[in-house]
Design a protein around this nucleic acid. Structure first.
Lengths: 190, 190
DNA sequence: TTGACAGGCTAACGCTGTTAGCCTACGGTT
DNA sequence: AACCGTAGGCTAACAGCGTTAGCCTGTCAA
């Protein structure tokens, strides 16, 4: 969807992601980024049209990493749901500023490679077996991560317990869906 | 925790919340706010120490409204969990910009009235009967709302179905907790 | 009558993203 | 060898941001 970046632009995006991850969203300014690269801020505009394009490029690298992590987590997992939610949490907590950049605003879909969003969502969809359930689990995981990142859970409580509670709730639900899927073709019910 | 606002400061906060709700976070600038009040931006600092204090005051009014809405939803509800999650969604979608201001950053707890956060959380805690389950439901509801507000769910899909899926998952879990709570005193198990 | 104070004002600072316009070095064509 | 387009830097500048310093005026109490 977006035309590919020049080699120099890719260098800039790498430096921008480093700056974001190390110092947070407030530090990701065109002047700070230019400083890191040893140039002046206006020169950045020779390689990227505006800051939104820079952010979209960072977001793209984030989704690629996340998709790879989720695929690895799903691969041959005994407990797909637990494995993938653990990978989701792991990614978000390992890259908090990147995760927030990826999720805080509406996705700049027209500046992202086609299919990347679907690829990232696929492992969870596969693990749950049902689109609605996948969305519910997605919401739960995203909500938990955001509550953790914004320090919303009461201090001193273990987030893991709440994660377990949610995973347990959705696991029984996934089992129910599997049951329905197994029964349906053979028309065992009704 | 925070000293009370002067009458003039309260007027300013009312105008600020209107501005935020009508035009979004990007429009909530000190100059735009001053324009609405027919004064100049620096004059605002006679009444509020800085923009963070203004935001904290807006957040406070938001939590008060949300707490009242949740309490009403819980009051005599046949299905407490469904009622309160519906109220949660209703509040967030009715005040999207306010909701985001309330949840995007770590809470400025030292600038909020003591007990307000707990009061807002109480209805959900009561509806679930278990703190960990309450946190899981909180995360689910917050995640769903954020996915809706950032247009993250696939276009054309009905968010309601995902809400139902999550509520169903947590309802069976709540029933299990009730069961355990009923059994435990009589030592019916083990 | 005096004085404190509440509540406005202008000017200015450093920061932000962004644009216009200029300059230099390099690579390919004639 | 001479030329020229282009890639990729540069400075200066603009509007808008939160914020501070310093000034002025109207009101009310002593």
């Amino acid at each position: 969807m977006a035309e590919p970046l020049s080699p120099r632009a890719r260098q800039i995006v790498v430096a921008a992601r480093e700056l974001l991850e190390q110092e947070g969203a407030a530090a990701l300014t065109m002047r700070r980024l230019a400083d890191r690269l040893g140039i002046r801020a206006p020169s950045l505009y020779k390689h990227l049209p505006d800051k939104a394009a820079l952010e979209a490029a960072i977001i793209t690298t984030g989704f690629e990493d996340a998709a790879a992590a989720f695929e690895t987590a799903l691969d041959g997992a005994a407990e797909p749901l637990a494995s993938i939610t653990a990978a989701y949490r792991g990614f978000a907590l390992a890259h908090p500023h990147l995760y927030r950049l990826m999720t805080d605003q509406p996705l700049p879909r027209d500046r992202l490679p086609t299919g990347l969003e679907e690829r990232t969502a696929a492992p969870l969809l596969h693990a749950t077996g049902d689109p609605q359930l996948a969305r519910a689990v997605f919401a739960f995981a995203h909500g938990m991560v955001m509550l953790e990142l914004t320090h919303r859970l009461p201090a001193g409580t273990d987030p893991q317990a709440a994660w377990q509670e949610g995973i347990a709730a959705f696991r029984t639900r996934a089992a129910a869906h599997d049951q329905a899927a197994t029964d349906q073709p053979a028309l065992r019910r009704r």
